[in-house]
């Protein structure tokens, strides 16, 4: 949705991830960019260059925080020290919304630093939704949860991934960061139709979208974020835009990072699909 309560009633356009190799270019050339997504953990530090750069960026640009370690799905209780640091950063950036992943990644205080797939059960949906509510209440900022790409599924699962996502966000009354590349990757790895996924989620809760590149192997696809976006993912993006409306969109490029201009140009390709989605109401793909 263009502006909704899940993205702080903002209408951001097309952004890219703020990455170290681009710092000098951005600070010197001050290119026009709608917004930057920052990885929260990279700036949850006590001082030094990361915060100096962030402050300089914020003088010129809008930033939105994206986390990788909140682990809404971990059975562990939220870590107080972590939350305190995150809240300090939220106050500093004034991020209109904050996103993290619908996954788990830690147990007993030990961290895998991976985005591990959830078991799609009603019990874990209830737990996860409650944790999201607690964290949102503490941070006092809207939260969007992102669907992850996955390479494994559990026997105990009781529903599809999109049904689980819906169950969690409805119970938590939070937003969705819809990663269409992750939907594509998981669809290939788990043999489902990605358009069923897109059609099945509550579109009014989508506060942001992600696009990215991936890598195909013989038996599976990996979400590598080291390529331009592939055409099937753009097609999914166009369909998602048709369903959800024009939504704040971000290109993720995290490995083998090319020049700033190349990354930004790739992100701006989203405009073609936005225009296309606006112009034509194509029949839903099956």
């Amino acid at each position: 949705m263009p502006a909704n309560s899940f993205n702080g009633q903002t209408d951001y356009g097309i952004g890219i991830g703020l990455r170290v190799p681009h710092y000098a270019h951005i600070l010197e050339k001050k290119p026009v960019v709608d917004w930057f997504e920052i990885i929260s953990e990279n700036f949850m530090v006590d001082g030094g260059r990361p915060l100096q750069v962030l402050d300089q960026i914020m003088e010129q640009y809008r930033v939105v925080q994206h986390g990788v370690s909140m682990y809404f799905g971990s059975a562990d209780k939220p870590d107080r020290a972590h939350l305190k640091k995150l809240k300090a950063l939220v106050k500093r950036t004034k991020t209109p919304w904050l996103s993290d992943h619908l996954c788990w990644g830690s147990v007993d205080g030990t961290y895998t630093h991976d985005l591990l797939p959830m078991p799609y059960t009603f019990a874990s949906a209830r737990r996860t939704a409650e944790k999201i509510r607690q964290i949102r209440d503490y941070l006092e900022v809207p939260i969007c949860v992102e669907n992850v790409s996955s390479y494994a599924e559990y026997h105990v699962s009781e529903m599809t991934e999109w049904e689980f996502l819906t169950e969690v966000v409805e119970r938590a009354d939070c937003g969705i960061l819809l990663d269409v590349n992750n939907i594509y990757v998981s669809a290939k790895n788990h043999d489902f139709n990605p358009y069923d996924y897109l059609n099945g989620v509550p579109h009014h809760r989508v506060g942001q979208m992600h696009v990215a590149g991936h890598t195909k192997f013989e038996k599976y696809i990996l979400d590598t974020h080291d390529h331009p976006v592939l055409d099937p993912v753009w097609q999914l993006y166009a369909h998602a835009t048709k369903l959800c409306g024009v939504t704040a969109t971000l290109l993720e490029w995290d490995d083998k990072i090319p020049s700033f201009q190349e990354v930004h140009d790739e992100a701006l390709k989203a405009n073609e699909y936005i225009d296309g989605a606006k112009a034509a109401k194509a029949p839903p793909k099956k």
């Binding site: 971990s74 059975a75 788990w104 830690s106 147990v107 007993d108 030990t110 895998t112 991976d114 591990l116 078991p119 059960t121 019990a123 874990s124 737990r127 559990y154 105990v156």
Partner: peptide, 23 residues
């Protein structure tokens, strides 16, 4: 591994088993 996830304890068991395997 738990055969069904009815409680938070079951979720912990599943996550602990998988973490032990991954590490």
């Amino acid at each position: 591994a738990p055969k069904r996830l009815a409680t938070t304890g079951d979720v912990v068991k599943l996550q602990r088993l998988m973490t032990h395997i991954l590490v």
